[in-house]
Amino acid sequence: MEPLTSKKKVLIQKPLTFAERIYLPALTKGLSITISHFFKKEATIRYPEVQREMSINWRGMHSLKRDEDGRERCTACGLCALSCPAEAITMIAAERKPEEKELYREEKYASVYEINMLRCIFCGLCEEACPKEAIYLDGPIVPSDYLRKDFIYGKDKLVEQPLVKK
């Protein structure tokens, strides 16, 4: 048959040379390679104690932000839940009472805000969708847990700690 391409390469199995057949040169070569690795620095990071440095655009656990006065930015518009491709976000909106002005920036706020960390794919679309700059994926790695229900993070885990006024 005519070769279809000019790149055809005929492979010939060469008989092993004597040095190859007695194995020992290859063995010593292999052993010297492995022993050189014995003295190399290990690549392991002892995870819980030591953490790898993340890149600046790394996306970790979500945090709900506060403004400069310590009020929650989120206005429960639902755009993050709408944009979420994994449907991980649910929220219940509530109206701000006059005495809660110190707590919430907008007149409407999220009384319940839950993210299911098992569903979340950390794509960052909620962050992009948010008109109030209220949610950012700037936290650490989401820790492991034993029960599915413990992966549904509420406001207690998500909302940023209030700034301590000096």
Binding site: K40, K41, T44
Partner: peptide, 9 residues
């Protein structure tokens, strides 16, 4: 030994 030879801990 296995770990050290494979650059692990």
């Amino acid at each position: 030994v296995a770990a050290f030879l494979q650059d692990r801990l």
